[in-house]
């Protein structure tokens, strides 16, 4: 009798683990509706990780609202995926990319450099939207460590119940619907926006305090460069054609130098908008801050040509596996674009 005393505690421990995991999933925000849809995007990649993407996009809104993988496939036959989230910091991009490159072997990685402006973690809300969706791994552990803002609890990134227990009284049908798998609201990571709010005027840029970037984001940029070099992947640094917040000429120069020294490509798309055909009276959904779907498609077409010229993509439209992957996606994409356009009038 005495020998079996361990059975009850061990059973309880296992049950406790399962319940903590399940309840954590239940109370975690699902970001399935409302204005913060970006919170569900990092997790979505796990469903697509074995699809063999030729191009991976990593970064903040300047990738997930600027490039359309559906357009890239429809027009160039290149498979791609965007792993981005709102205000995704450079170190978060590094850890997310590291995690992706454990299973993916892309030819090119396109990285948004917009977040180089942030030398330190900014806010818990953005951290949560990026990190909560990561599965337990060494990368998640390190990403959390690098991202914590003051007063944040590290352990609650692994036990979300500790952070979101108060949501118990706010649960909706979405919380049970997406209990085990988050909502798929994007098109291989692209978050579609169809509204058209023309650019008129944006707040004046404040004077630049520091012509270079902070040590921390630069250190992680270096790590991304090394990682891609190790894996023989072409790295392209991009600054998307988004006019706010300001992108200073000093930063542009710094990055051009950096790219040259590190033998990577840097594209500042702001002065190339005309070549791309981007018209900020129709191609932005918020007055020039972000591109809408029409702008994103133009930008993607331009990048597709560029990637093709550099020999970084190949046409897989006749590949039955890739074609099957994209047929449903393209159909859903076209349907949503039409429907949203109708709503937007």
């Amino acid at each position: 009798m005495k020998r079996n005393r361990w059975i009850a505690p061990v059973f309880t421990l296992v049950l406790a683990g399962l319940l903590l995991w399940g309840l954590g999933r239940l109370v975690r925000p699902k970001y399935a509706s409302g204005v913060t849809l970006e919170g569900s995007m990092v997790e979505n990649w796990y469903t697509h990780r074995n699809e063999g993407h030729q191009v991976l996009f990593v970064g903040d809104c300047e990738v997930y609202e600027s490039f359309s993988p559906v357009t890239l496939f429809e027009e160039f036959g290149a498979t791609s995926y965007i792993r981005g989230s709102a205000q995704q910091l450079m170190w978060q991009s590094y850890y997310l990319l590291s995690e992706m490159l454990k299973v993916e072997t892309p030819r090119a990685v396109v990285l948004s450099v917009c977040s180089l402006r942030y030398a330190e973690p900014q806010s818990e809300a953005y951290n949560r939207m990026t990190l909560d969706g990561m599965r337990l791994s060494k990368e998640k552990f390190e990403a959390v460590r690098a991202s914590l803002t003051e007063g944040e609890s590290e352990i609650s990134y692994y036990l979300p119940l500790l952070r979101y227990h108060d949501r118990l009284f706010e649960l909706t049908a979405e919380d049970t619907l997406y209990l085990f798998q988050g909502p798929e609201l994007t098109y291989n990571g692209y978050l579609m926006r169809t509204e058209q709010v023309p650019y008129t005027r944006l707040p004046a840029a404040p004077a630049l305090q520091e012509p270079s970037f902070g040590d921390k984001p630069v250190e992680y940029l270096n790590r991304i460069v090394s990682l891609c070099r190790e894996k023989d992947i072409a790295l392209i640094l991009v600054k998307s054609p988004c006019l706010y917040p300001a992108w200073y000429p000093e930063w542009d120069l710094w990055l051009a130098d950096y790219a040259e020294q590190n033998r990577v490509e840097y594209i500042n798309a702001i002065p190339l908008m005309e070549d791309m055909g981007i018209d900020l009276s129709t191609d932005t959904y918020d007055g020039g801050i972000h591109l809408n779907v029409y702008g994103a498609e133009k930008y993607t077409r331009w990048l597709g040509e560029h990637l093709k010229e550099r020999g970084l993509i190949e046409d897989q439209r006749l590949d039955p596996v890739a074609a099957a992957q994209y047929s449903d996606l393209s159909e859903r994409y076209a349907r949503e674009k039409r429907a949203k356009a109708e709503v937007d009038g």
Binding site: R5, I7, A8, P9, F11, T12, L15, A16, L19, L20, L23, E124, G151, S153, S156, L161, L162, R163, H165, D166, L168
Partner: peptide
């Protein structure tokens, strides 16, 4: 033992779900 450990689990869940803590 079973009552003891299940009581511990119930109390743990009570604290985690209904306790006032965190931000």
């Amino acid at each position: 033992p079973w009552k003891l450990w299940l009581a511990a689990l119930a109390l743990l869940l009570l604290c985690l779900l209904l306790g006032a803590y965190g931000p």
